[in-house]
C-alpha cells in the first residue's frame, strides 16, 4: 500500500511539474494530457473501491479494468439518481439499436407499445403467447446472469430489477 501511495503521489507531482511547459510544446502538451488522464483514472478508481490501494500495486492492466468498471458504475449511479433507467434494445436484422428509459414506462403493455412504434413491428410477449399467432417478433431480455428470458413472465417491478438489455427476435415457431 505504501508503494501504491507513493506512486500516486509521484504521478500527481509529475503532472504538476509538467503543466508550466505545456504551452511551449505540442509534444509536452500531449504528454500532459496523457498523465492527467491516468491520474484521473486512478483517482476515480480509489473513490469507488476500498480495495483500490491493493490493486494499485498490481499491473497497469488491472488498473485499466478497474477504471472501466468505475466508469460503468458511475454511469449506472447517475442514471438511477436522476430517475431514469436506460437499457439497450436491438431488433434482429436491424444494425442500429435504440435506448429506452424503463423508468418512464407504466408496465409491460406500455413497453410493448413503445417498442412497436420504435421499430415499426408487431411484438409478442408472454401474456399474448396463447393469443393470435400473426405477430412476427418476440421480445426477450438479458438478465443479470446474461440469460435470455421472455418478457412478461415475472411482475413488472421484478423485471426492472433484473433486466439488463432487450432484444426483439424473430418468432421462429408457429402456433
Amino acid at each position: 500500500m505504501g508503494r501504491g501511495r507513493s506512486s500516486s503521489s509521484s504521478s500527481i507531482e509529475s503532472s504538476s511539474k509538467s503543466n508550466p511547459f505545456g504551452a511551449s510544446s505540442s509534444t509536452r502538451n500531449l504528454s500532459t494530457d496523457l498523465r492527467l488522464g491516468l491520474s484521473f483514472g486512478t483517482s476515480s478508481g480509489t473513490q469507488y473501491f476500498n480495495g483500490g490501494y491493493g490493486y494499485s500495486v498490481a499491473a497497469p492492466a488491472v488498473e485499466d479494468a478497474e477504471y472501466v468498471a468505475a466508469v460503468e458504475e458511475e454511469e449506472e449511479n447517475e442514471c438511477n439518481s436522476v430517475g431514469s433507467f436506460y437499457v439497450k434494445v436491438n431488433m434482429e436484422g436491424v444494425p442500429i439499436g435504440r435506448k429506452i428509459d424503463l423508468m418512464s414506462l407504466n408496465g409491460y403493455r406500455d413497453l410493448i407499445r413503445t417498442l412497436d412504434f420504435m421499430f415499426n413491428a408487431s411484438i409478442l410477449w408472454a401474456e399474448e403467447e396463447d393469443m393470435c399467432n400473426e405477430k412476427s417478433h418476440v421480445l426477450t431480455y438479458a438478465d443479470k446472469e446474461g440469460d435470455w428470458m421472455m418478457v412478461g413472465d415475472v411482475p413488472w417491478e421484478m423485471f426492472l430489477s433484473t433486466v439488463r438489455r432487450l432484444k426483439i427476435s424473430r418468432a421462429n415457431y408457429h402456433y
Binding site: R5, I12, S16, L36, S39, F40, S43, Q47, Y48, S81
Partner: peptide, 28 residues
C-alpha cells in the same frame, strides 16, 4: 480532482480518496 493534483503532502493524499464519495452524495 484539481485539488488533489495541487496537493503533494502525503497525509492529505491518504485522506482525500475516501472523502469525495459521501460528499458527492450530500451535494446530490
Amino acid at each position: 480532482f484539481h485539488q488533489d493534483n495541487s496537493t503533494t503532502q502525503q497525509p492529505r493524499d491518504t485522506t482525500t480518496p475516501f472523502i469525495p464519495k459521501p460528499a458527492s452524495k450530500n451535494h446530490n
